[in-house]
Design a protein around this nucleic acid. Structure first.
Lengths: 154, 154
DNA sequence: GCAGGCGATGTGATATTGTATCGTCGCGTG
DNA sequence: CACGCGACGATACAATATCACATCGCCTGC
């Protein structure tokens, strides 16, 4: 496991970091993309594309259609500034863009929050197991459903 | 990791094993459930509820609505005779029902097939990591997207 | 300046996936 | 037989995702 520092951003700094990543990838950082990113970042838990479309519409004062949101989310996910929570059909910002782990989401069945943890050993072990089965892994999906600390075990 | 034998069924024997599990759980094994199970088992890759509804309709010679299929699939998943592939919104039969692992799916991006592997060490490690983060895991979702052996690495 | 290319976005339609509600049927039981 | 109950049918609906095509702004070659 490589030793490295996570730079965790929030608020405007996070948006700025996302902009840098997108531009470094040769993509444009448009006003709309910025608005969608900020909208997504403002959610405390995974947000569906339609949630984002609605909130972003309010933010920018006009209707933003779901398909535009999907286009932008696809770009974000491809460039690792946002993540998709597969078991929820929803999205989260990546709080340390530029740091590409196989990430693990702990999804609380009670409050709906998803916390993101990194553990390279698990991702590496999973990739190794897959390769051992003659499979060439590209994208692991590792999510755990359960109860977060705040929601207890009951 | 416990030492045990996997009894892998196929065809009628698999359906029979599923029946036994469902009945042992105090649920009924109706003709319709049997038909839906056999229909699902006949798919070589993860099948959506609507795929199953269509194929089962053909099999039984009348329209079977999606909601009925969902009800039955929910029952199957709850009793571990079928599994849901979260990143595909699709279902697979569990070829060794009664053996409840945290299962891992290798989902081929080229041919769409999903192979099911077991590795208790990975599931246990993942649960342990989750607990280390103050989380009480109930259901891990472990899926890997990539290329299967038959589809190569290109 | 203007034509054309190109990426980003808008608009509307549509496809796919998943739920809710309510009625009916068959079956066991008092 | 009356009743309750689980399974199922039918319909509507909600939520998620994609497609096709038009438009707009910007940049470039001419």
């Amino acid at each position: 496991m490589s030793v490295h520092t996570h730079i965790t951003h929030s608020g405007p700094a996070l948006t700025e970091a996302a902009r840098a990543v997108i531009e470094a990838a040769g993509e444009q950082w448009t006003d709309l993309r910025s608005d969608v990113f900020a909208t997504l970042a403002a959610f405390a838990r995974p947000a569906s594309a339609y949630d984002i479309a609605e909130a972003a519409s309010a933010r920018i004062g006009r209707r933003l259609a779901a398909n535009s949101v999907y286009r932008i989310l696809d770009l974000f996910v491809a460039n690792n500034v946002a993540r998709r929570v597969e078991s929820r059909n929803a999205y989260l910002v990546n709080e340390h863009p530029g740091c590409a782990h196989d990430c693990i989401f702990l999804v609380c069945e009670a409050c709906g929050e998803a916390t993101h943890i990194d553990d390279d050993r698990l991702g590496d072990a999973l990739r190794g197991t897959a390769r051992g089965a003659g499979f060439t892994p590209t994208r692991p999906v590792i999510e755990v459903h359960g109860r977060c600390g705040g929601c207890g075990t009951s």
